[in-house]
Design a protein around this nucleic acid. Structure first.
Length: 182
DNA sequence: CGTGTTTGACCAGCGC
DNA sequence: GCGCTGGTCAAACACG
């Protein structure tokens, strides 16, 4: 089951980062550059996508080179042209290399939808945290280009402690909160 | 019986 | 206005 490995450090974590997932990525990348567009050639790992809207649809997830995580903390288009602003929470996307779509991050999720995505032969799955009062959502999508890569997009922050103490994925979330200013 | 998944329908935003 | 697409709902279903 724990067959997935997060891509941020291919070299150091070969197979078992179940027990020690440090994420250098967030700390090193984010403070200097909040913006994706890293131009290395291949650091492969864990890239952050700005999942949200603004992504030019041409390279939203197809042509983007592999790189960088980036917590995209952008309030997604919240000012629509309509009177009421639609409050959208920032989203955080990252990629993991996995054979399975479901990455157990310690929280309990309930699937509430699945949609076929354009330019992607794999469907996107929508999950919601089942904890009462916590309406964190996540989307899981597999890249059509590289089927070994799963893009997980989190929206919102958990208002409760992690429910399972599986890995310390919790660290990841904590880091996200720290660097995103929440 | 409680919990989670599946899946078609529905709705809203956006571009043309 | 219309069609496309993404996101959500909810009833039916499956499973332990």
């Amino acid at each position: 089951m724990e067959n997935y490995q997060i891509l941020f450090h291919p070299s150091s974590s070969s197979s078992s980062l179940s027990s020690s997932t440090q994420l250098p990525l967030l700390s090193s990348n984010m403070q200097n550059s909040n913006v994706l567009t890293n131009t290395n050639g291949n650091s492969n790992g864990f890239w952050g996508l700005k999942t949200d809207v603004d992504v030019p649809k041409s390279d939203a997830n197809n042509t983007a080179p592999h790189e960088t995580f980036v917590g995209s903390q952008d309030e997604v288009k919240q000012e629509k042209k309509k009177g009421e602003k639609k409050v959208r929470r920032p989203r955080y996307a990252f990629q993991t290399r996995s054979h399975v779509d479901i990455l157990d991050d310690g929280y309990r999720w309930r699937k509430y939808g699945q949609k076929a995505v354009k330019n992607n032969k794999h469907p996107r799955s929508y999950y919601r945290c089942t904890h009462q009062g916590c309406n964190v959502k996540k989307q899981v999508q597999r890249l059509s280009k590289d089927e070994g890569i799963v893009v997980t997009t989190y929206e919102g922050m958990h208002t409760h402690p992690i429910e399972k103490s599986t890995d310390n994925f919790e660290h990841i979330l904590n880091q996200m909160q720290i660097y995103s200013g929440f």
